[in-house]
Amino acid sequence: MFSWFANPHRFLMLSSWLAPLFYAAAALLIAWGLWQGLWMVPKDDYQGGDIMRVMFVHVPAAWLAMASYLGMAVMSFVWFIWRHEVADIAAKAIAPLGATWTALCLVTGAIWGKPTWGTWWQWDDARMMSVLFMFFLFLGYMALRAAMDTRQKAARAGAILAMVGALNVPLIKFSVDLFTSLHQDASVITPEGPKMAAVYLWPLLISSLGHSLLFAALVMTLMRAEIWTRRAAQIRARLMTGD
């Protein structure tokens, strides 16, 4: 199925109407989620009072930090095996956006942590540490790609690193979990079904969906830019060699 999307031309056609649609939907969903989260839902004094409302940005960001790295690794794998150019363009586009949302997750976590735990940064907290290392994986990926002298080499080096990183993520997560966690246990998805109060759950899910759509739309925009950049470079190279 991926082969069908792997054609750059088809991707440009598809994304030309899908991306604006995603932007619009994302704006609506994020706006509704924030309005609900910031003004409508009651504050939870156990979670630090009004500051818990940062959750409506923090949780979507945490979800996207994980999902974007997974997406980048899958795209790298697809490129490495089948050499679909669009997969590499996708991996390249995800990296800076994934790093941005990962940073957003860290910053909102620190803002939530200060009044709740009395500290900006908690070394004992497994999730903060995992997300921090995720951030470093993104940085390393981008730095490595930037250091390669052709886009073909950047694609190969990036794919190798993203796959090695993805294989290590469970191990990093497990090792970091050996430290005691200050966070509460995972509360949105549990084996018994959602147990968080529905009043928080809906704005949270809507917010997460909105952030995901925004992320996807931005990825498509960056990919479109990259495809046009490569075409422009090809035309320039052809003009310069007079071929």
Partner: peptide, 23 residues
């Protein structure tokens, strides 16, 4: 190995492998 052709690859190597050293 990834940075073998990169001039002054030392800094790049450090950034790449830091998360892998964590466990």
């Amino acid at each position: 190995a990834l940075a073998a052709t990169v001039r002054r690859g030392g800094l790049l190597i450090s950034l790449i492998v830091l998360p892998l050293y964590v466990p």
